[in-house]
Computed example of a mutant assay.
Amino acid sequence: MSSTRPSATALASMIDHTLLTPEATHDDVATLIAEAREYGTWSVCVSPSMLPLNVDMGDVKLAVVCGFPSGKHTSAVKAAEARDAIAAGADEVDMVINLGMVKEGRWADVTADIAAVKQAVPDPKILKVIIESAVLTDDEIVRACKAAEGAGADFVKTSTGFHPKGGASVEAVALMANTVGGRLGVKASGGIRDYETACAMVEAGATRLGVSSTAKILAGAPQA
């Protein structure tokens, strides 16, 4: 590990404090937001049906998932979902690509799917593109990242955290970071449950972390 490891404050500023379980309630989301304000996380990430949020967010941003978790929705449905989320106050949208299109090599369609959602998430709003890296070959990871960049996305993101193949890996994050070369952000998400793993993802090139174990992660970080 690097000798310059992020403090709890620095790491919190990179975290999307996340609650995407199907049984989550509005009270659970209110608790999530209170925690995010206490920890100083960048955002909370929630399901679209939880909007609008009638809770004081303070400085915490609001991220909302789209086409989640399968990505198999039509582009029109994904775009409508994203548009509704933005209208209801979302600052960022995390969309899932159509993995079947990737496996079929339909790269123009993958790009068009992302572009349709980006039209519904105008700047300065942020679009993150979930590529479900654990399901993809290295070549597919590279091409999916290039499709996201070509469609005008702002971030590429490893995982939903719901796929049985797994979540983020250091190798995938490094490959994604190398591919986008700092032009897009890289969000590592899925299976990050402690400070050591969070540091490994950051060192590999992650600029944002999607986690639900925020308290445990920050408890392991230097407090300075």
Rank of each mutant, 00 (worst) to 15 (best):
M1Q: 13
T4V: 14
R5Q: 15
P6V: 09
T9N: 15
A10W: 14
A12E: 05
M14Y: 12
M14V: 09
I15R: 10
I15F: 09
I15Q: 06
D16G: 08
L20M: 02
T21D: 05
T25V: 11
D28Y: 10
A30W: 08
T31A: 15
I33D: 05
A34Y: 03
E35S: 07
E35P: 04
W42S: 15
S49Q: 12
V55F: 08
M57V: 09
G58Q: 06
D59F: 06
V60W: 12
K61E: 14
V64A: 00
V65H: 02
F68G: 00
P69Y: 09
G71I: 03
K72I: 07
K72V: 06
S75Q: 09
R83G: 04
D84A: 06
A88L: 15
A88H: 12
G89R: 11
A90T: 00
D91F: 11
E92V: 07
V93F: 02
V93L: 03
I97W: 00
L99Q: 09
V102Q: 06
V102W: 09
E104D: 15
R106T: 00
D109G: 09
T111R: 13
A112I: 13
D113K: 01
I114T: 07
V121T: 02
P124E: 06
I126W: 05
I126K: 02
S133A: 11
V135I: 14
T137E: 00
E140S: 05
I141D: 00
R143W: 13
C145Q: 12
C145V: 09
A147W: 13
A151I: 11
A153G: 08
A153Q: 04
A153Y: 05
D154N: 13
T158A: 06
G161E: 04
P164C: 07
G167N: 06
A168G: 07
L175F: 01
M176E: 04
A177Y: 08
N178H: 13
V180A: 07
V180N: 07
G181I: 02
G181N: 14
G182D: 10
G182Q: 01
G185A: 09
S189P: 06
S189L: 10
E196Q: 15
A198D: 11
V202P: 02
V202T: 12
T207M: 06
S213R: 15
T214I: 08
T214E: 01
A215K: 15
K216D: 15
G220D: 13
A221C: 12
P222N: 13
Q223G: 07
